[in-house]
């Protein structure tokens, strides 16, 4: 099995883990699955680094490990455990089965789109690239289909992981500072979302996005 095949295989695992994040009952559970997913992402970086002989990807992997496997999940698990909304229920607009189906359709579509790309950098990693794109849209779908605002935060994280993977696949050669900047932004985004979600929960006693509809027109 060549290095790039490992990359593609691991990328497939990402979709599985992201499904787990979305369908998990409790947000704190989702946070654990998210940590697991980020671990897979780190593995992808390492595999990609060795396969393409790009040592800077190891730095990316290290940064991602610190921030996404440890920092963000811990923040989320700690703060989300304290938030609750009895009335919300599962907060799903569509059932888990439909979610899985949706994920499959998204992956299929993205594979079709990516097959048209002719970039030299994309050769050999097209499956992974397709999955990274699918991951991005799957995150978007998560934001749209989940009423629980905490799940929406996870949706954002999934999108972010997707684009992070695309970045690594296509732009692994970019200066490290770029990657650090993006990661920092992502971490801050999650932190601010968590703070806001906490405030909303405290002030309005809800986590339901459908309850946030005072402003209209």
């Amino acid at each position: 099995m060549s290095g790039l095949q490992i990359v593609n295989g691991l990328a497939g695992l990402l979709i599985v883990t992201s499904l787990l994040v979305v369908v998990a009952r409790k947000p704190s559970q989702s946070a654990k699955f998210y940590a697991l997913q980020s671990l897979v992402l780190v593995a992808v970086f390492v595999a990609l680094g060795s396969a393409t002989n790009a040592p800077q990807l190891y730095v990316w992997a290290a940064v991602a490990f610190v921030t996404k496997v440890v920092l963000v999940p811990v923040i989320m698990a700690r703060s989300f455990g304290r938030l609750s909304d009895e009335r919300l229920g599962s907060g799903e607009r569509i059932s888990p089965a439909v979610t899985v189906l949706l994920a499959a359709v998204v992956v299929l579509l993205c594979t079709l789109i990516i097959s048209g790309v002719t970039l030299p950098a994309a050769a050999g990693i097209k499956p992974a690239l397709a999955i990274s794109l699918a991951h991005f849209f799957f995150g978007l779908a998560c934001i749209v289909t989940q009423r629980n605002i905490l799940k929406q935060v996870f949706g954002y994280c999934l999108m972010e992981n997707g684009s992070h993977l695309t970045l690594a696949l296509l732009a692994g050669s970019a200066p490290e500072l770029v990657e650090i900047g993006i990661t920092t932004d992502a971490v801050f985004a999650v932190v601010i979302m968590v703070i806001l979600a906490t405030q909303i929960n405290r002030k309005l006693a809800t986590l339901d996005a459908d309850q946030l509809t005072t402003l209209k027109g």
């Binding site: 991005f136 954002y156 999108m159 684009s163 979302m193 806001l196 509809t213």
Partner: peptide, 22 residues
């Protein structure tokens, strides 16, 4: 209302800007 606005702002713009990253 202001928290609601901030939340919408944060989510929609983060998502939108993620497209920008792509």
């Amino acid at each position: 209302t202001s928290l609601e606005a901030a939340w919408k702002y944060l989510i929609i713009c983060s998502v939108g800007v993620a497209f920008g990253l792509y």
